[in-house]
Design a protein around this nucleic acid. Structure first.
Lengths: 195, 195, 195, 195
DNA sequence: GATGAATGAGAATTCATTCAT
DNA sequence: TATGAATGAATTCTCATTCAT
């Protein structure tokens, strides 16, 4: 497998950092190569092209990102607790890796259609997990069933995403993970004052 | 003023369309010039550089976008109705102008720091409006007051944003505006099944 | 005649200053127009193209430059005194007009063949005057006649030219005119110590 | 070092020729690349920008130019003979390399301040050598000491420079080297007829 | 596998010049 | 005459990618 080759990981790691620090377009292949301590040409032994680096970074990192969330969820029995676990894990992981956070929230919003598509494929796996949690909540007669799951998922993902982006832009001046229970509370109970 | 000069508007319009269709990076200045039916050099009589075109497109369009939402809100008396009006107007406007929707949801997520900053300045005005609605809801004892307004705003904006992006990516196969009342309902009442 | 039209003189004057301050290549026609307080297009009513401006500046200014030297020379009876007068007038005039000095010593050394040729045509008139002085000196049995006049003229002109250039580059920190008698002395008597 | 890389020399050589033939401003980088038989981009592996090419050509060539003059001078014992050797070497070298002569006398008289400065730095080394010869002549009680060395140097350099320029402009129709002893004679003895 | 020198396509921008008013 | 908005040709430089070693 690719992943066993040491230079592959080196390059992924270097790319993540360089892109986070400079932005995708200002991250020349040669800069990534230098940071990874390999020759420019070596990059092309492991990646088809520059875009492939970005996609690979995302796939690799998103893969473990999702895996960890799955594990956290598995430990919870109710949809409610799973939702909280999901939000917590989402925030925690991005909190703990600022490069990943920047690349995820800012750099990946690139526009090349092909790139977008690939990213969405990876993201799809994550969205599916969210959908499962929601469905479980509905089955448990805990979440309402009169609303399209897609819309509920958009609310969950959209809120988390906006929260993280906002946090990244403010350059991490407050504790992101602490927001998790509040976000969970807001999403489940809504804005209305319970009388 | 700039805006009175006819070629300025021509170029803005052309840029919006070309960028929506090709993506910012694939939108050569010469392509925009051709679409606007002016010479390449003419672009530089009205814009400092290529980036300035994108920023100007955004400012011009976002300006009226926000203005329209403000007017819709003004007509409503309660925060609840205002929130619905806001979501409806947001969805309606982006529904009606597919170029604007694409540019807003995809192209503007560019990463050049300077560009981001300019965009955020304009966006700030919009976020402030959302904040006002939330505050009004709290004052009316309609929205809960135990949660940071920023977080509530992130939920509103994040949900709308994700919904529109998702809709843009699915290339408009369903009615976005029809989602507005449901989104509003979800945000206010939350996920929980009311027993 | 061209010269009677007021804008013509305005443009010549503006061009001299702008070129002296920015260099020929950084002196956009629009910059000259602005300095002359005329519209860009107006320039082209008086000059064929940008190069023509430079040539015209040179011709106009060199014309009076040479005329003044001729007058000074006319007042002297011997070649020796005429040579001194020539050097003095050369230094004096360039001393008194720093813009002219800069343009003459630095900007005119441009390379476009056509430009060079035109400049040389004007310069030719000056060199001819120098030749006349030398010839007179020879006729007076005052200057040696065993050396090609061209070479003697090159020594006179080359020395003056290098002296002025050097002075311009040092940004006028010493009195150029005061050098005139010494230069004259050097040229006539040479380097050798008279024993 | 740069100089050991073959393409570096190729480009320098090509640039010298192309610039001599077309003038600096008409020498597109692509033209130089073609003449050097390298790709356009290769130029930028060895030179920062187009200006850097010109400066490098000058430095490389002027370096050996000066070195050769120094060696010639070293062989002479008296200042008088050294001065002759200097003039001879100056004329000989430029005679033998018409491209270098053209670039030196015409193209380098460009005006961009930064460029000028760099050129003057290199030239300074040459002027220093001239000064040394003059000083030696004074010490030998052979040259007069009542005149500023700077002025004497300006006479030597100015005369040589004007002589070469004149020769270059006349497109080499006469023997430049043959002028050396006459120039030397003129400089040392002056114009005056010895009675 | 690894290297890094070389490639060359590609694009933004400038500015002398024109011409309708 | 005078204007100045519009033109578009022209050119430098970047950087992803290749390939001989």
């Amino acid at each position: 497998m690719k992943k066993s080759r040491p230079k592959y990981g080196q390059i992924i790691e270097a790319a993540l950092q360089v892109i986070a620090e400079n932005g995708y377009h200002a991250s020349q292949v040669s800069k990534i190569a230098k940071q990874a301590d390999v020759a420019d040409g070596t990059i092309y032994l492991y990646f088809k092209n520059k875009e492939d680096i970005l996609i690979s970074v995302f796939k690799e990192r998103m893969g473990s990102f999702i895996k960890q969330i799955e594990q956290k969820i598995k430990k919870e029995t109710t949809a409610d607790k799973q939702l909280l676990a999901l939000i917590e894990s989402h925030f925690t992981q991005l909190s703990e890796n600022k490069y990943l956070a920047i690349v995820t929230q800012l750099e990946l919003r690139q526009s090349k259609p092909k790139l977008r598509e690939e990213i969405n494929n990876v993201l799809k796996a994550y969205l599916d997990i969210i959908d499962l949690v929601i469905q479980k909540g509905i089955d448990e007669k805990f979440f309402r069933e009169d609303v399209d799951i897609r819309l509920m998922r958009q609310m969950i993902f959209g809120t988390m995403d906006e929260t993280v982006t906002s946090w990244v832009m403010k350059t991490h001046r407050y504790n992101l993970v602490a927001q998790a229970p509040i976000v969970h509370d807001l999403i489940t109970k809504g804005f209305l004052l319970q009388k």
